[in-house]
Design a protein around this nucleic acid. Structure first.
Lengths: 113, 113
DNA sequence: CCAATAGTTATCCATAAAGCTAAGTATTGC
DNA sequence: GCAATACTTAGCTTTATGGATAACTATTGG
């Protein structure tokens, strides 16, 4: 288990998973999959106040899942697919460890029938 | 965006993502990838009190990520890989929608060079 | 220039989350 | 049967999260 708690809250994966835990934020990620958008463009689809929505954007940004950039008075947001891949990687790691386990189990049962 | 907020907190995906948001719970999932274990066996690896740890197990169980079963005084836990696949599915859906978008974009740019 | 637009900051509030201790309930080994 | 084992339940505390409002700071478009 090699002391996982060494990362209290920093830790990339941690922030990414935490960001995806909220349905609003997952919806934003989904929406940004269809291309970039400005803050108010994105906010239109959600039944919450702008400042509340902005908080979600900030969480997404500090998690690295989105990147934003302000031009004039408009802030544009876009998805950062690499960060999403991080989740993929974690999943793959679980799968690998699971497979390794069943492999060992198989080897064992095959050795002594 | 078809009103995502119709699901306040029930909603399978929601609970799965929320469950994975905590590092302790992710570590448990990881550990269970190497095969089932009893509550105290699992708890040994973590620096928190047993009741606190049990809460995590309950969250994991109600999310469907693990299944548990009590035999005598011992409760055994095992990973439910299908639920983990749900995350995979979500990721795949994002990728699909992203690809669809870039495809349309490509088609457009190719049509009018 | 000035009004509308697009964010941003600052507070505040309610609830949920993660942790703890203490005490309780079954099971099991001797 | 009785002590140790293996959880469970109950209650409490602290902090984080998700939401709101009000007021503020740029940028435009006309």
């Amino acid at each position: 288990m090699d002391n996982y708690w060494a990362e209290p809250d920093r830790g990339e994966a941690n922030r990414v998973f935490a960001a995806l835990a909220d349905p609003t934020r997952r919806a934003v990620v989904h929406r940004l999959g269809a291309g970039p958008g400005t803050v108010s463009e994105l906010a239109r689809d959600f039944p919450i106040a702008l400042p509340s929505f902005m908080k979600h954007l900030r969480v997404l940004e500090t998690s690295g899942l989105i990147r934003t950039r302000k031009t004039g008075r408009v802030r544009s947001c876009e998805l950062n697919r690499e960060r999403l891949a991080l989740v993929d990687d974690w999943l793959a790691a679980q799968r690998r460890s699971w497979e390794a386990h069943t492999d060992r189990l198989q080897a064992f049962t095959e050795e002594r029938p």
